[in-house]
Design a protein around this nucleic acid. Structure first.
Lengths: 212, 212
DNA sequence: GTACATTTCAAACGTATGTTTAAATTCGCT
DNA sequence: AGCGAATTTAAACATACGTTTGAAATGTAC
């Protein structure tokens, strides 16, 4: 291979691949350093600890994605009247797809990592995310409330969490689902296909009439 | 305490609690036996291995739930015309709530375990479940297809997995969500309240018009 | 009450993990 | 070329895990 990448980068790329495939806790530093073809101790040398490596892997994507999303949310909030819910949701598509700039497969990898972040019970990740990007998320919730003026805020709260569950779970099982879909329906499914399939589903669920 | 329960039962109850709270792999046999106040070796004596303990914990609920669901599905399939989608989904409510017969909080615990089963990558669980209850699941998919004749089967496949994600994620974060809802909206939320909130959301998402 | 099977127990086994150490090596700079 | 800092390396450390062992304790039937 004669890989001239820096050790840091080799670790990051091996780590993100294994983290996405099997989760944070289930991936050992020895697997990572073995795949990256670097010494075991170099993870602690360059990143301090496994915990900090996990944050570095996520941060590489979040640092690109979240400012982009914030900018889009701000733009929509400036509109004179409420936006369509599908418009609000569609705002995620482009910034997510642009993550392939970090790496080919970047979009898919990041979404899987996001899923792992919620299902692996890594308390430090929740804190890390809310601390850095809570403001951006608030703008999104406001946009959804404006799109659905008939729904009480508590209903929106629940439905947004329902939707987060859909996204996180779908992305965490992304590989398995793609395999099943390919086998059962002879479909080739790429990540942008899944994202675009999600939007009408989520929009319909979030905007559904209340049960009374 | 002077607990006269059998060692087996004490292990099962401690295990299900810890598995639901923190997942299968993240829970050690030493945590389980410590909470159950039994000897470490008794897990291997009574259940053989950790893997088999996990299956026993799930089986205690599945053995009650799945025949009940199968019976309901069969009843609906006997109808002359397609059932409403909300009717099909509502069929889950009663059997799930009846799981409190196993244990108070049984419904909530089981749904959390189900979530863990999907997010913890325990390959043997998927096999175990499909092998035992694949037939029942097929009936449910058929019912949904009858309810949504306009949707291609591949679209239904994806949307049912989206829905599974909602359920699994919501139940896995059940405790946290209840606390937030109580604090932000002054709502008291019980498990049957969450389940009933889910149905219109899921029904609208599954039946949404296709994007293309 | 004695013999037998079942269950409990403390201890150890083998393996894997994240992290640390200290020496060896490589790199950047004058 | 040679010095000092940065990096890489092999080895060990401490800890945790699931599992096994063999003896002690308990229960059961005659």
């Amino acid at each position: 291979m004669s890989n001239k990448q820096s050790t840091q980068l080799k670790i990051l790329e091996a780590a993100e691949q294994l983290f996405a495939e099997t989760g944070f806790s289930a991936t050992s530093l020895r697997q990572i350093t073995s795949l990256a073809e670097v010494n075991l101790a170099s993870v602690n040398y360059h990143f301090g600890s496994k915990k900090e490596l996990i944050q570095a892997v996520l941060q590489r994507y979040l640092a690109i994605l979240m400012p982009r999303l914030d900018q889009e949310f701000t733009r929509l909030l400036a509109a004179q009247q409420p936006n369509q819910l599908t418009t609000v949701l569609s705002v995620f598509v482009e910034p997510l797809l642009e993550l392939s700039a970090v790496q080919p497969q970047g979009t898919s990898t990041f979404l899987q990592l996001l899923g792992r972040g919620y299902t692996d019970v890594q308390g430090h990740l929740r804190w890390f995310f809310n601390h850095h990007y809570g403001r951006t998320l608030d703008k999104f919730v406001l946009l959804v409330q404006q799109s659905c003026p008939a729904l009480p805020p508590s209903e929106i709260f629940w439905r947004l969490h329902f939707s987060l569950g859909t996204i996180v779970f779908t992305m965490a099982s992304n590989v398995a689902l793609k395999d099943i879909a390919a086998a059962d329906f002879n479909e080739t499914v790429e990540i942008d296909g899944v994202i675009k399939r999600l939007i009408p589903y989520l929009a319909a669920g979030i905007a559904a009439p209340s049960a009374a």
